[in-house]
Amino acid sequence: MIVRTAHYIWGGWGAISVLLVALAAWEWAAGFQSELILPSPLDVMAHLSQLLADPEAWRTIGITARRALLGFGLAWVVGGGLGLLAGRTITGAVISRPLISVLLGTPPIAWLVLALLWLGSGDGSPVFTVFIACLPVLFLQCMQGSRTLSLQYHDLAHNFELNARQRWVEINLPHILSYVLPATITALGVAWKVVVMAELLASDEGVGAMLAVSRSWLDTTGALAWILTTVGLLLLTEYLFLEPIKRHIERWQVRE
């Protein structure tokens, strides 16, 4: 376990190196542009550290995180649950597939307009937009996981007289998780992007709303600082929380 964790952390150096190269390219490009168009990464970092020293900024981040995680959590429960049910029968899969295609093909901005009409400009609109954007991703993968359960393992479970709970723990859950975990990471990324967009257009609180303020003041440095905050939070959530869980659960698929 310790070796695996050390290996995982050491493996992060590759990703960090790539990010540093990207920062160098940004620094190089900023040398040719005014601060209004593209401020240097150092200026943005300085602005960011100032921003994070202010408790109000953390409250703003908290509001955005709450909305993103609430919408994402609802989508996980509803989309995952319905996906598992739909995957149990061919009829369920056939009926739901076109509906999911419609949901996947509808841009989140369209849902946001409807959400504003239905729910107003509070928490409801961003949460609903995140929910509806994440739902089809999770639904589809849960349905696929449920549909692809091998009949071979059903026979095995029957022969070894597993009860319903044991069937879930021993056979169904590990198989379905191998579909659900990648979808969870994808949906979480979608949630962060969509919540910022929704707040930009439909809220006066949260990171998206702060981006709107920066835009109105032509504060590119401030806007980039907020963007870095959002991306940083997403990366932290993914690599410090979700990815280790995914690696632990899918360790049987990992070959070192």
């Binding site: 071979q152 393992y153 026979d155 095995l156 022969n159 070894f160 021993e170 056979i171 590990p174 198989h175 191998s178 049987w252």
Partner: peptide, 15 residues
């Protein structure tokens, strides 16, 4: 208690 050895081993890949 009847137990079966299937044609393919059918081991659980995640165990």
């Amino acid at each position: 208690r009847i137990r079966m050895v299937f044609q393919q081993p059918r081991l659980l890949p995640w165990q």
